[in-house]
Amino acid sequence: MKKLFILGKEDRPSLPAIVCSWLLVCIFIVVFFWISLHAIQTTFDFSFIADFHIRLLKGFGMTLLLSLASFIVSLFLGVISAAGQGSRLLPIRCLCTLYVTFIRGTPLIMQIYLFFYIIGTAWGIENRFLAGVLILSIFEGAYITEILRGSLLSIDAAQLEAARAVGFTHAQTIRWVILPQLIARTLPALTGQLASIIKDSSLLSMIAVIEITQTIREITATNFRLFEGYFFLGILYLCLTLPVTLASKVLERRFRYEN
């Protein structure tokens, strides 16, 4: 019995032990929620999923689209700003550093309101999807800058000297040495960042982009099925983030030689 739940210092958990523990945790969670919900005398009613399935599907599609578009644009911004931080033009370097510092040092929700005001009012971008993608990309781009910058700096000088020694040109060094090592080093982290983007996109509901969180907010505002609505929302996000996280893990293992 003890063997099932407590690991010795050097032990690896056995399969039955793993299953038992997971089961225990699941039972605990279910009971906890059941008691909590019983206290406020709720009954479960997930019928809204069928009733609103078109809106839900649209919202889910919007979240997917927002995330993918933002991922691409933020990658683009990240590459530019990572390169800019190594620029020999000092003002460019300052600008990129300022960008990264400001974005990483302030909460997304503040940036959403600030940029939506600037982008929407001053630049006249009325399209909320476009504004959302821009704002989210600016935010995530700063984190991607850090990921790229870190691995660029950590490329071994010995590898670059070896590239010169075998006779590679600059272009060949980039193609055959720097890029593959950079990709191997950043791809797992970048994939992880995609999971963050998916989750962060929910905050765009604040400026009424009708993505999945906003859709659920609107639905629950009329049917008051708050628990079911947000529970279902959580499941939907997990459907997106779990595969992405898994992919990130697989990539990490695939590029194991980096460590």
Binding site: D156, A158, Q159, E161, A162, A163, A165, W176, P180, Q181
Partner: peptide, 9 residues
């Protein structure tokens, strides 16, 4: 080289 001269990827 003394070491680390092979392309690690």
């Amino acid at each position: 080289f003394q070491q680390g001269g092979l392309f690690r990827h």
